[in-house]
Nucleic acid binder design. Structure first.
Length: 414
RNA sequence: GUGGCUGUAGCUCAGUUGGUUAGAGCGCCUGGUUGUGGUCCAGGAGGCCGUGGGUUCAAAUCCCAUCAGCCACCCCA
């Protein structure tokens, strides 16, 4: 192939694939709006500090996956690896704490320097829903409900399963974390190198390990359920009850964890088995501590992100390109008339193609390749009668139509 | 970041133990029609065999490196 390859982990999105992306994004945006979540946008890059503080200095994303660059000695910038940090930052910079609760929808490209795989690229796209300023478990239920609704509207809900867990409030977490660290310290010898590393940085993550030795140790590890205080237990019960009321099935997964301290209570993931190792398709949770952590007023929050590429891979049939009507001039004398006719029909709201060159045969062939619905043939004969020949390209039937009523006549091909 | 598999026309692939001008299907172009597409028929264009080195009289075929994709780990959307 050419040496002009796209950068590793990036790709061009041509119209066929773009159409799939748009189905995902447009569906999610419309549904989110229906729930009152309004679209907003933040810059693709931020001061590196924004991500370090919000994702945590020890997270994998921050320690080895960020695209960081500096412009001046004082300006360390990073291409965003996810959306929530920027939204939280915008919340603080904009003084938006005055207007709670806030409901946002977001979509755009994200950047992570990971080893590419199917369903995992270095530039990828996410849709994102955030609810700020709601501490009640009903907020969790609504946010998860939007996720389920989006997946259902895309026709992929039955290809996924909702996994649910709670991380409790900070008090419960601290107690559990301490118990976990103590337990794993006693079993250091049986843990994998990866997990030993996690023991310092991110002990909850060990629960998620797929390593066999780790799994044996994990089997007897303390359970989060035993360390949840009453408030946390009640909170989780209310979330579960809400999901049951809405008929959203879920499976409890005590191994579903988030490593960082500002995550609280609900954690959830819609996963699929159709994308190999990249199973998480739409995932999120509650982050009551986040905004305070990066320097704002203590504000509860919950949200999710979903991978546009992953969702579009799950989509069954690709949406077809819109079918235009093609205007075909015959002979040089008809070109001008065709040009004005084309523009007039477009202004009437029709999708019209006018080829730039070629004889009748070539133009008809091109119409066919465009999957055109009809051809409007304009030659000397037609012009003499102030008419055009309209050919239905599906049935092959054609008739002479006066130019005066042409746009009405073509409306049925719209 | 670690380990493994793969890389031949626009696409999907074939290419025998290294041996003359590298093949197929689909797609594309031209013609069979002077004002009519899809089907059919005939013809045609298009490959530095991912890239760079090496072994050999001889490399798409063997070796090394490199780039990219894929799979698992990891991470997550």
């Amino acid at each position: 192939m050419s040496t002009l390859q796209p950068v590793r982990g990036t790709r061009d999105i041509l119209p066929d694939e773009m159409r799939r992306h748009r189905v995902v994004i447009d569906t999610a945006r419309a549904l989110a709006e229906q729930y009152g979540y309004l679209e907003m946008s933040t810059p693709v890059f931020e001061f590196t500090e924004v991500f370090k503080r919000s994702l945590g200095d020890t997270s994998d994303v921050v320690t080895k996956e960020m695209y960081t660059f500096s412009m001046k000695e004082s300006e360390e910038l990073t291409l965003r690896p996810e959306a929530t940090a920027g939204i939280a930052r915008a919340f603080i910079s904009g003084g938006l704490a005055q207007q709670l609760p806030l409901k946002y929808f977001y979509c755009g490209p994200m950047f992570r320097h990971e080893r590419p795989q199917k369903g995992r690229q270095r530039q990828f796209h996410q849709i994102d829903v955030e609810l700020l300023g709601v501490a009640e478990p009903l907020g969790d239920v609504e946010v998860i409900a939007i996720g389920a609704h989006v997946l259902d509207a895309l026709g992929v809900l039955e290809k996924t399963a909702l996994e649910l867990n709670t991380l409790g409030d900070p008090e419960s977490r601290r107690a559990y974390r301490a118990a976990l660290v103590e337990y794993f310290q006693d079993h250091r010898a049986q843990l994998s190198a990866d997990s030993l590393d996690r023991l310092d940085r991110n002990p909850l993550r060990i629960l998620d390990s797929k390593n066999e030795g780790d799994r044996r140790v994990i089997a007897d590890a303390p359970l989060f359920g035993d360390y949840l205080n009453q408030e946390s237990r009640d909170f989780f019960d209310t979330v579960k009850a809400g999901l049951e009321v809405l008929d959203i099935p879920y499976q409890l997964n005590p191994r579903l964890v988030r490593g960082l301290d500002y995550y609280t209570h609900t954690a959830f993931e819609f996963t699929t088995r159709e994308l190999g190792a990249q199973g998480a398709v739409l995932a999120g949770g509650r982050y009551d501590g986040l905004i305070e952590t990066i320097g704002g007023p203590s504000t509860p929050g919950i949200g999710w992100a979903a991978g546009v590429e992953r969702l579009s891979m799950l989509l069954g049939r690709a949406p077809v390109a819109p079918r235009p009507v093609v205007v075909v001039p015959v002979g040089g004398g008809a070109e001008e008339a065709a040009l004005t006719l084309t523009q007039r029909l477009r202004q009437a709201g029709l999708s019209i193609e006018l080829g730039f060159s070629g004889n009748l045969k070539k133009r008809m062939k091109r119409a066919d390749r465009l999957n055109a619905r009809a051809a409007v043939i304009l030659g000397e004969d037609e012009l003499a009668r102030n008419s055009a020949t309209v050919r239905d390209l599906d049935t092959g039937e054609q008739e002479l139509v006066s130019l005066d009523v042409l746009s009405d006549r073509l409306a049925r091909f719209g």
